[in-house]
């Protein structure tokens, strides 16, 4: 079974947020408006976090684009009381918007803050939206799904063209849009894929790896100096 994963090269990433906007366009993620944004309720499945290290004299700043890391041992699906978020057979942590009761336990449990809540009805059917992704009602949690609908469409296209499914047909919106090609998406279980090769690089590290959530988004640290 394919193990979908992502490698984000922090040396290449320029913090331009193309991935953030591509994700919002692809998944109909709403802009919550000035008042709600000031209250800190911006929904941004892929969010570029800025880590500044104040102690150093020439303080180092690092841009970390953080999607949902689709953990293999997700702390969020354990705590959900109604099976509204679960790790589906493709290894993606999915969200069932029709079943979520909005208790927000998964938001408190996720150490990466990758879950966002619809405090009001932010998004309604509007022109220019992507019909492949449903719009989320008020009172439910939503999160990055590795553009799971693209996987399903790729599978259907493969079926329609009577050929077996080619992993390269399926790429997430953020990986497709990243101008610095810092985000590489693919099948981690296939050793020949670009993702697996990059994941084996000495610069590879995982975010909060010590928590044992086994995230499937692997970061490559910035290089120093030359070479």
């Amino acid at each position: 079974m394919a193990l979908w994963g992502m490698v984000i090269d922090l040396d290449r990433c320029t913090g331009c947020q193309a991935c953030v906007m591509a994700c919002k366009a692809e998944n109909n993620v709403p802009a919550v408006g000035a008042k709600e944004a000031k209250r800190g309720r911006i929904i941004s499945w892929m969010q570029v976090l800025t880590e500044t290290d104040e102690e150093h004299h020439g303080e180092k700043t690092r841009f970390i684009p953080r999607p949902c890391l689709q953990c293999d041992d997700p702390p969020c699906t354990k705590v959900c009381p109604v099976y509204a978020t679960y790790r589906n057979p493709d290894g993606i942590v999915a969200q069932i918007y029709a079943r979520c009761i909005g208790c927000r336990f998964c938001m408190a449990a996720c150490p990466y803050n990758a879950k966002y809540f619809n405090w009001h009805t932010y998004q309604t059917e509007k022109p220019g939206q992507n019909p492949d992704v449903s719009v989320r009602p008020k009172g439910v949690v939503e999160k990055c799904t590795f553009c799971h609908h693209r996987l399903q469409k790729a599978r259907e296209r493969a079926l329609a063209e009577k050929r077996d499914f080619d992993p390269n047909d399926y790429v997430t919106a953020c990986a497709q849009a990243c101008p610095a090609q810092a985000i590489v998406f693919g099948d981690l279980s296939d050793p020949t894929s670009a993702v697996s090769k990059l994941a084996a690089s000495p610069r590879a590290f995982k975010l909060l790896e010590e928590l044992g959530t086994k995230p499937k988004v692997i970061y490559l640290s910035e290089g120093e100096g030359r070479g």
């Binding site: 705590v79 959900c80 009381p81 109604v82 979520c100 009761i101 909005g102 336990f105 008020k138 009172g139």
Partner: peptide
Amino acid sequence: DLGRPDRLMNVIRYGRYQS
């Protein structure tokens, strides 16, 4: 505290003891 109190029955129908 629930976001969707109208779906409380989900706890009864789809409850899971891991939570």
